[in-house]
Design a protein around this nucleic acid. Structure first.
Length: 660
DNA sequence: AGTACTGTTGTGACC
DNA sequence: CGGTCACAACAGTAC
């Protein structure tokens, strides 16, 4: 093992490890890497690399649209590296950092490893592991933090060591740290790379739950060859990954990001007077907000570049500029708030179980917990076939509420919907309609959003479900009124639910209220559950009836929330952890509370444990209120049939993964 | 300690 | 059409 002093005095051979900082402008870590090389002029060597990570490929939920955005970003970065030095490009190496680095250090005679630190629980753990491997190999590690306005750990420290749960806390803690740093300039040149021969074998990842199987329609060759099929370290293609084709119109890359930023900053009035709550979620040509969020996620745009370009305009503005939290820079403060909460709470941030900041609500479809680790497994309990149907219809955009369906279809095809649209569908799935666990919704967003940022996604789902950050559960979005507020003509619905495009605006948000003669005239019959799209042998299109009476469900949900709030449990409460929370809820309360005996929390024990199978296969129990309403509607009362087909599907999937 | 106010983004009735 | 208010009522912050 060479001593550290060797690394410091001989010509540096540096790896710059790109991760979610796929840019050259304002990169504190890249700047540090280059400053290491500078005194040594032409004898210094720089390897710009990107490593495959099985956690990202298999364990995170990543749909084709986000993969495409990532590959766009990598290609653009690679071309920019080549522009600075024709011998340079991004070296994409198909192996996990934890196994790759020790071999790479030896093979390339590396003296320094530089990268931008992560702040999430998995990222921190992986970074620590890599740092240890480097130390063992005598490689000096230099890291910087550049993902947020302020270092997230520093923000937490200045917030009294507590997670940042409000904007006031972020503003105060941020002020103690100091001004947001000004962006660093793009480097003017790069050292050459060294020899890139790889004389070692690839280590393929071990077994890890593969949540992305359904994203592929071809063979998964993610880990085919260390340096890619042509041996040239090229950015992979979607075909190489076996991924389905992307459908999003949004493109990635630093070049595009900076062009979009320039374009945005030309509109001084828009930038200086931006107020998020006044931007329309129904605008689609063009969208009402900046579309820069995916670039912040992949680091193709620096958040500090965005901040200062905006702030400088605001400072010079002659009229009345908007202020945080609704202003453009205010949006970035929310991002820092969620990153601070994530940095402080680690794995617990992403789930209810064991999360001291997250209220416990006995939602339907709760996450399964591995009791050994206290972490969610990625599977969930189907406690109610009805709730499972609500969830599936929500995800597939066939709830029978056109505004919800339009948003969900836009989300799936384009990978982006407006922030207020996210509010609408998140409120609807959780506290304002389906009473389904926010973790189910967060998983769908994780898979489909091109701008998915775990901290922001989790934080916003907690916000909208009133489990953390926000508590006014009686403020509930209506799928009819909220759409109409922004788009009386229903242009947005017509664009994304084209089967309704000819409906009169009077019925566009409630097509089931249109007389059948009109439905026929406008070419679409309102019936069924959305699984069929044509009626009368193709003569008419079909769009489903609403899957429930919204006013009725709204009332059930608000009463459920009221009950759960008065019980007042948080995710780390002993009674949530050990399952005795059930005793605090009456059997007829909304959510999976029936029966005093059950798994811990709203959680599933392993399949050999008592209770699980029994609950999984139970037909859906209606709550007391539901029973009353159902009885009022249907003379003599009626217990709805379980949708056994759906239940079986889930149980089979669970078994398959268990044995994998 | 207790009270009042405010909180990025609700709805629907009423004037 | 636009503004105001009740609805039923949470929790962090300021005083």
């Amino acid at each position: 093992m060479p001593p550290k002093s060797t690394a410091a005095t001989s010509s540096p051979r540096v790896i710059y490890w790109f991760r979610t900082d796929l840019r050259l402008h304002d990169s504190p870590a890249l700047s540090t890497a280059l400053s290491l090389c500078k005194p040594h002029k032409s004898s210094a060597v720089l390897y710009p690399i990107w490593t495959w990570d099985p956690h990202y490929v298999y364990h995170a939920r990543v749909g084709p649209n986000r993969w495409q955005f990532l590959l766009d970003s990598q290609s653009d970065l690679s071309a920019s590296l080549t522009k600075l030095n024709p011998k340079q490009k991004l070296l994409v190496i198909r192996e996990a950092p934890q196994t790759l680095f020790p071999k790479l250090f030896r093979e390339w005679g590396i003296t320094h490893l530089c990268f931008e630190r992560d702040s999430d629980a998995y990222g921190k753990g992986r970074d620590d592991e890599v740092v240890k491997l480097a130390e063992k190999a005598g490689v000096e590690v230099v890291t910087e933090y550049g993902r947020t306005l302020w270092d997230s750990d520093a923000l937490v420290r200045e917030n009294g060591g507590k997670p940042t749960m409000s904007i006031t806390q972020v503003e105060k803690a941020g002020a103690k740290i100091g001004d947001v740093p000004r962006p660093i300039e793009v480097p003017k040149s790069l050292p050459d790379p060294g020899d890139t021969k790889l004389g070692f074998q690839m280590e393929k990842p071990g077994k890890i739950p593969d949540f992305n199987e359904k994203q592929r329609d071809g063979e998964d060759r993610s880990y085919g060859e260390l340096s890619g099929p042509k041996g040239d370290f090229a950015v992979p293609t979607m075909e190489e990954l076996g991924m389905k084709k992307a459908t999003t119109p949004h493109r990635g890359g630093e070049t595009i990001a900076l062009e979009m930023l320039d374009e945005l900053m030309k509109d001084v009035d828009y930038v200086a007077t931006f107020e998020k709550p006044k931007t329309a979620p129904t605008a689609f040509e063009p969208q009402a907000t900046t579309l820069l969020s995916p670039h912040l996620h992949f680091g193709t745009l620096s958040v500090r570049e965005f901040y200062w370009r905006t702030q400088d305009i605001v400072d010079k503005y002659k009229g009345t500029a908007s202020k945080p939290p609704t202003s453009l820079t205010g949006q970035l403060l929310f991002r820092d708030m969620y990153f601070g909460a994530q940095a402080s709470l680690a794995y617990a941030f992403g789930q209810t179980y064991n999360n001291p900041q997250c209220r416990f609500i006995p939602w339907h479809l709760p996450s399964e917990i591995d009791e050994k680790t206290g972490l969610v497994t990625g599977k969930y309990l189907v406690d109610s076939a009805e709730a499972e149907q609500y969830f599936i219809r929500w995800r597939e955009g066939r709830t029978g509420f056109p505004f919800i369906d339009a948003l969900m279809r836009q989300l799936k095809s384009e990978g982006w919907i407006h922030h207020l649209g996210r509010h609408m569908v998140a409120c609807f799935l959780t506290r304002g309609g389906c009473y389904v666990d926010w973790e189910r919704g967060a998983e769908v967003f994780e898979e489909w959003l091109i701008d998915h940022e775990a901290a922001c996604n989790i934080g916003n789902w907690q916000w909208l479900s009133c489990t953390a950050f926000y508590a006014q559960f009686y403020r509930c979005y209506s799928p009819v009124a909220f759409g109409q507020k922004w788009d009386k003509e229903g242009k947005f619905v017509r664009r994304f639910v084209p089967e309704l495009k000819d409906f009169d605006k009077k019925y566009i948000y409630e097509p089931h209220k249109a007389p059948v003669a009109d439905q026929k005239k406008w070419g679409c019959l309102i019936k069924g559950d959305g699984t069929e799209t044509e009626a009368d042998g193709g003569k008419f299109q079909m769009y489903p009836k609403p899957m429930f009476d919204f006013a009725e469900r709204r009332e059930i949900c608000i009463q459920g929330m009221k009950r759960a709030y008065s019980v007042g449990l948080y995710g780390n409460d002993e009674r949530v952890l050990n399952g005795t929370w059930r005793e605090l809820f009456p059997d007829d309360a909304e959510g999976p509370t029936s029966g005093k005996k059950g798994p811990p929390g709203a959680m599933v024990e392993h399949e050999d444990a008592d209770g699980t199978e029994e609950i999984s296969h139970q037909p859906p129990e209606l709550s007391g209120q539901e029973k009353k309403k159902a009885a009022a509607k249907k003379p003599g009362g009626h217990k709805r049939d379980a949708s056994q087909g759906t239940l079986d599907g889930i149980v089979t999937r669970k078994k398959k993964k268990e044995s994998a």
